[in-house]
Write a protein that binds this DNA or RNA. Structure first.
Lengths: 150, 150
DNA sequence: CTGCCTGCAAAGGATTTGCACTCAT
DNA sequence: ATGAGTGCAAATCCTTTGCAGGCAG
């Protein structure tokens, strides 16, 4: 499956920098390639622990930092809640929507912000990284509940 | 100045709920109305301390929560960096841009996301709260530095 | 072998909470 | 006077870091 391909890619990039492929790093990669597209550190730790209980939480953080540095994974800041991580190559690039009420996260097409992005570039010289933070709002079900009850 | 108007408004809303206007609350309000449009808790604490050194940090947090609840202030999640607060009536509603490199925060017109907002509403039933998180990217000067050097 | 990476534990920053006391009403 | 609100300190939560030893190459 793709997990192996990603693992080889990482190994190559690490070698090129004189760094190493280790058990903790393999476990984190396996966790990232074998689960939902965006995961919290908590979830990654759980998946990693299932594969190799000896891997320490701190190593998960360090490995994630390294993978971000290599461009293999990206992290997304989620307003209320901890940062989530996903593979950079995760299907198509996308952005995230978080419901401020129930906390659920939904994906949306990156193109959604392309005109805003162009405008910011032209007007402020600001290069938008659309996927880097989750947009906040109310999801459909929470909107419904809020308007009917309360 | 406007500070008094806001203070009166808050006092009224508090009374309506059987709650009280206190020194810490006045100090936080003064800090919010008399400074930059968005402030970190750290900055608010500093401003508050200048007015009344006895006010404890925990009270600042509690007061801010209360003001958000009353709809007087809003908080904005800033990807890297702590939450910032601003008056809900702050001039015109606006959204925030944060440079992932230097951390600077810039305001942008809310209208920037109006079409995206419409699309999300229609397509996902998601009600976007554009100002609730700061959009991430690279500001003009950091873009320049990055492309020229490095 | 060499030194990159690890586990551990402790430190760190931001925010919350339990409690007895104070003060606004 | 009465209980909402406070200061304080301790507790949480999430993340980072110093260090001695371990394993990849």
């Amino acid at each position: 499956v793709r997990a192996d391909a990603v693992s080889s890619e990482v190994r190559a990039k690490l070698n090129a920098r004189g760094e190493r492929m280790t058990r903790p790093r393999q476990a984190v990669l396996a966790a990232m390639t074998g689960n939902a597209d965006h995961l919290t550190v908590e979830e990654i730790c759980a998946a990693v622990a299932a594969l190799d209980p000896a891997v320490h939480r701190a190593s998960v953080y360090r490995t994630l930092d390294m993978l971000v540095d290599l461009g293999i994974v990206q992290h997304v800041h989620v307003g209320h809640g901890s940062t989530v991580y996903h593979l950079a190559s995760s299907e198509v690039a996308h952005l995230h929507l978080q419901c401020v009420r129930c906390g659920s996260i939904t994906d949306a097409p990156l193109a959604l912000l392309s005109s805003a992005s162009d405008y910011l570039e032209r007007t402020y010289g600001f290069t938008l990284d659309s996927g880097h933070v989750a947009l906040a709002g109310l999801c459909r079900s929470c909107t419904t509940e809020t308007s009917s009850s309360a």
